[in-house]
Simulated assay, not measured.
Amino acid sequence: MTDSMDSRRPRAKAADKRQRLTAAAARVLHEQGVERTTIADIAQAADVPAGNVYYYFKTKGELVEAALSEHTRHLEELTGALDRLADPRERLKGLVAAWVGRREVAARYGCPTGTLAMELDKRAEGGLDLAAGRVVRQLLDWVERQFREMGAADPEGLSLALVGAYQGMSLLSSALRDPEIMTREGARLVGWLDALDAPAGHGGR
């Protein structure tokens, strides 16, 4: 038993360091952008010696990929929690509430995935822009499913409208350093969701 526990400790410590580096990469890349961020910045934020980073991630590109996986994990945690609500309209309103709840961060740095996707689109690095796009697509698909379950007309278009509105209010909030833009526009989105009609027999599970 003791030998088995001893053999697990190094693996557990390695997994913990990798997760700390992944979380730090997501946070620092959001705050500083890809160009300005160094591997040493991420190591410092994760409280991991800079020389140890290469044991887990060979390049900054791999750290960007790890950051995107962290954004995916956060999205899945959020949508998983919202999926426990019976009413798809309430799930969408809960999504808007989560966006507004991060208004201070949005006002300083913008949307984590959106800003990263825009920056990566301008860089000639193999496929990272497509990886960022997949995170955005995952959000769009989840939102579309909620509109579809509501029985709303054009669920794909409504999904684009809602996620596009979020990206727009995040951008404006960041550009003007005004978190209350998120509050006001979030309230407008909730009103829009409440006003959407659904055919009889839809609107819940």
Rank of each mutant, 00 (worst) to 15 (best):
Q19N: 09
R20K: 13
L21V: 10
T22L: 08
A23S: 14
A24T: 01
A26V: 06
A26D: 03
R27V: 12
V28T: 14
E31K: 09
Q32Y: 07
G33M: 11
V34F: 13
E35G: 02
T37W: 10
I42P: 04
I42F: 06
Q44E: 15
Q44N: 10
Q44A: 15
A45D: 01
A46L: 07
D47T: 13
D47E: 15
D47N: 15
V48N: 07
V48P: 08
P49Y: 07
G51D: 00
N52K: 09
Y55G: 05
Y56G: 08
Y56I: 10
T59E: 09
T59R: 13
E62V: 07
L63D: 02
L63A: 07
L63V: 09
L63C: 08
E65T: 15
A66R: 06
S69Y: 03
R73V: 04
H74A: 13
L75Q: 14
L75W: 09
E76N: 15
G80M: 14
G80C: 12
D83S: 12
D83V: 00
A86P: 05
A86G: 02
R89S: 06
E90N: 04
G94T: 05
L95C: 03
L95N: 01
V96Y: 02
A97F: 04
A97S: 12
A97C: 03
A98W: 09
A98K: 02
V100W: 04
G101P: 05
R103S: 15
V105W: 08
V105I: 09
A107T: 05
A107V: 02
R108S: 11
C111W: 06
G114E: 00
T115H: 04
L116G: 06
M118P: 00
L120Y: 00
D121Q: 14
K122G: 05
R123C: 02
G126A: 15
G126Q: 11
G127E: 09
D129Q: 08
L130C: 00
A132N: 05
R134W: 01
Q138K: 15
L139G: 08
D141C: 03
V143A: 12
V143T: 12
R145L: 12
